[in-house]
Write a protein that binds this DNA or RNA. Structure first.
Lengths: 207, 207
DNA sequence: GCATAGTGTGTACGATCGTCCAACAACTGC
DNA sequence: GCAGTTGTTGGACGATCGTACACACTATGC
């Protein structure tokens, strides 16, 4: 099972075929052995959700965004719910990884608080895409408990990362504070300035 | 919010008297033998959203829940978006009213902090319906700025109510903290106990 | 009584949806 | 070469959607 064409651009198909039957250029025929396919669909799904919301997400839109035929949706995923679950699992894992990495980069206990403030600011003023996706996931989990394993794992990892520098109770409260600050920044008309964040962290982490 | 009815008997509170509504003779508005119609549709819409999400909300489901014909949807509202906007405006207003009322009931400055903790606990451990609706609205506002006037007004009123007892900065941070605590309670597997909330409020309000 | 105007609704239309499946392309063993 | 297997896809199906509109109904003006 030697797959030689997996490294090139998967979009330029059949460029070395000896038989040139007149096929549509965009269609992918037969076994193409594109292992990125599944990942591309998941990424495209997150992209569509962030732009159109779950209410506006459909198999057809995701397929168009990922440049795969519609049939690939039910071939790679057992329905819409399965796709959504995988997409949000990847999203939560990615965000958790990033947060853990940044928290682990803080080594000096003396300046932990300042470093954490800087990291929090990156989240609070982060890009809108992650913000929208977070809320979509929260909404799903608030209504459907079966999604709570994703959010629970996410928050557990966040707390654990914060516990590298703070006691468990403080880490938990700090995690909640970050959440609230992020929400307020996103949904309020007047933006919150960075000084407020520093004050909030200082108060929460005061012992 | 609506904690009195389970929407199982939506039409028992009307038709109190046999007298038709006394309309002014010169009024152009003709009869509407059921003036609660519009309100009932809005309430039914919030009910459907809390159970099925915005993705699962449709004119037909709302109409069935409100016990009105399908045609009434486009007769009373200029499309789905108009209905959603009115529904969430009512939701935010109702929640803001309640929060303001409870905050205004705290009169003794000496015990303000304890009273606020009690009120916050009511929100953090409030019913799931309001929680789900809040998140649905947040999600909408995070993606569509035109919904931010609703959330912004809501948060503005929350802050103003808190400023009855705290300085503006503390009120703002406290508001964010409430948001985060509520989210964590809803989305996490392990519930947060009330002692944590008291500690969090004590730290945030420390000067 | 009739005419009128505004209120309310049943229904149909076109669009879009998720899902399924027979058919097809490419690869493997012979 | 051929047959079988696996990966992949285009199109069809029934369901559901938002919206529009012709029509029924009823209170008012005369």
């Amino acid at each position: 099972m030697t797959t030689d064409d997996g490294a090139d651009d998967p979009r330029s198909n059949q460029e070395h075929g000896p038989t040139p039957p007149p096929r549509r250029p965009g269609s992918r025929l037969g076994r193409s052995n594109d292992p990125d396919r599944r990942d591309r669909i998941i990424d495209a799904c997150l992209e569509v959700i962030s732009q159109a919301g779950i209410a506006g997400t459909s198999h057809r839109k995701v397929a168009a965004r990922a440049d795969v035929p519609l049939g690939a949706m039910t071939y790679y995923f057992d329905g819409m719910d399965d796709l959504l679950r995988e997409a949000f699992t990847r999203f939560a894992t990615t965000v958790s990884d990033r947060f853990e990495r940044r928290m682990a980069s803080v080594t000096d206990p003396a300046t932990a608080r300042e470093a954490v403030v800087a990291i929090i600011l990156q989240d609070v003023y982060g890009d809108d895409r992650d913000l929208v996706l977070s809320h979509e996931l929260y909404t799903l989990a608030a209504r459907d408990p079966s999604y709570r394993s994703i959010t629970s794992a996410w928050m557990g990892r966040s707390r654990a990362a914060l516990e590298r520098h703070f006691d468990p109770q403080t880490a938990s409260l700090l995690d909640a504070l970050i959440e609230g600050l992020t929400i307020h920044r996103a949904l309020d008309a007047q933006p919150r300035d960075s000084h407020d964040v520093a004050v909030a962290v200082a108060r929460i982490t005061a012992s």
